[in-house]
């Protein structure tokens, strides 16, 4: 399974996403990372180009609702139908809203690396 990790918006906090990239790679997945400050369009385009199976969005600046609301539209516009996940500094109370926007899963503040890896393993075995 190939996972594209991404940093949408202008948020520069990338320690977490890089740590996760490392961990997912060590767990045996193929990982790509977009780098900082990508638009949703750029992220979806890259996912198509590298034929990613899953997209992960890392957002810590508080813009997760605004950004993820657009994710679904852009996925449809681009004819891409793969699971996408949101993580970063996400309040527990916003998880449902993110799922409604079409996220396959949302990992709120405090999620451990292990929990994400377990989730990806389950997704892989489906």
């Amino acid at each position: 399974m190939k996972i594209l990790l991404s940093k949408p918006g202008l948020d520069g906090h990338d320690v977490g996403v890089k740590v996760l990239a490392h961990a997912i790679k060590n767990a045996g997945f193929e990982v790509a990372y977009t780098g900082l400050r990508k638009s949703m369009e750029e992220i979806v385009e890259m996912a198509k180009k590298i034929e990613a199976d899953v997209i992960g969005l890392s957002i810590l600046s508080g813009t997760h609702l605004i950004l993820c609301e657009r994710m679904k539209e852009i996925m449809i516009e681009n004819g891409l139908d793969i699971p996408w996940l949101a993580g970063g500094n996400i309040p527990h109370g916003d998880v449902d809203a993110l799922l409604e926007f079409g996220a396959t899963a949302a990992f709120p503040t405090g999620t451990t690396i292990e929990e994400v890896v377990d989730y990806l393993n389950k997704l892989d075995n489906k």
């Binding site: 918006g9 202008l10 400050r37 638009s39």
Partner: peptide, 22 residues
């Protein structure tokens, strides 16, 4: 705010949701 820090004006599409935030 991040648009100012990244050299983008408030009306730039990339500034969406970020104007005056941090």
């Amino acid at each position: 705010d991040l648009p100012t820090q990244c050299g983008l004006d408030s009306d730039n599409p990339k500034a969406l949701g970020e104007v005056g935030r941090v």
